[in-house]
């Protein structure tokens, strides 16, 4: 059985994510610091809360840095806010992100309804781990007010159209991120959770 950890920033509901991982056959621990030894095959940064309180909860509760915990070999899935934390900084706050992907997080344009809330479809840009077996145009559930602006488009494997191009799935080395919520995206979301767990098994 693959064993993964969800980092809990203490801000909200991680029940659905835990549940979807368990349904996919994983054993799940919830952790609130990176100070204990990393015994996990994968780590999840969930998508609930706000940028600064989440970063603070990590920095203040852990002496060990995120990068030292996951190194280059623990696969990490960041969902929504969790993905946004991969970048250097965010217009949502003043705290620094993990900076494992070059670029920043910017607010969605005010010409559209914000939050971007609901089912939007994926335009697949290139093959990727998370997208294996996922059809072009698949519907996934978004709820967010910010979007990623990577320095290089190379990290984007899928986008969505919401007035602007919204990077929907990003991948770089052992870091995988989705702007939408796979745990809320019905059957196609299940495939993506499974794809992530498959990487964790290797």
């Amino acid at each position: 059985m693959v064993s993964v950890a969800i980092f809990d920033y203490g801000a909200g509901n991680i029940f659905s994510l835990k549940n979807s991982l368990e349904q996919a056959g994983a054993s799940v621990d919830v952790i609130t610091s990176f100070d204990k030894p990393n015994v996990y095959s994968g780590l999840l940064l969930p998508g609930v809360g706000n940028f600064d309180p989440a970063m603070k909860s990590i920095n203040e509760n852990s002496k060990t840095k995120f990068q030292d915990f996951v190194k280059t070999d623990t696969p990490v899935l960041g969902i929504c806010l969790g993905m946004e934390m991969f970048f250097e900084k965010s217009e949502e706050g003043i705290e620094k992100g993990f900076n494992v992907i070059d670029g920043e997080i910017v607010v969605l344009p005010s010409t559209m309804k914000v939050p971007h809330m609901g089912w939007n479809n994926l335009e697949i840009k290139k093959p990727g781990t998370i997208l294996e077996g996922v059809d072009e145009g698949s519907w996934v559930y978004f709820v967010h007010s910010y979007r990623a602006k990577p320095k290089s488009d190379d990290v984007i494997t899928a986008e969505s159209d919401y007035g602007v191009r919204v990077p929907a799935v990003v991948e770089k080395n052992n870091f995988f991120g989705t702007q939408f919520h796979p745990e809320k995206s019905g059957d196609v979301g299940k495939i993506m959770i499974q794809n992530f767990l498959n990487v964790c098994k290797k």
């Binding site: 971007h116 809330m117 145009g137």
Partner: peptide
């Protein structure tokens, strides 16, 4: 395509 209409 942008967002779908949600049926709840």
């Amino acid at each position: 395509m942008t967002l779908t209409k949600r049926i709840i």
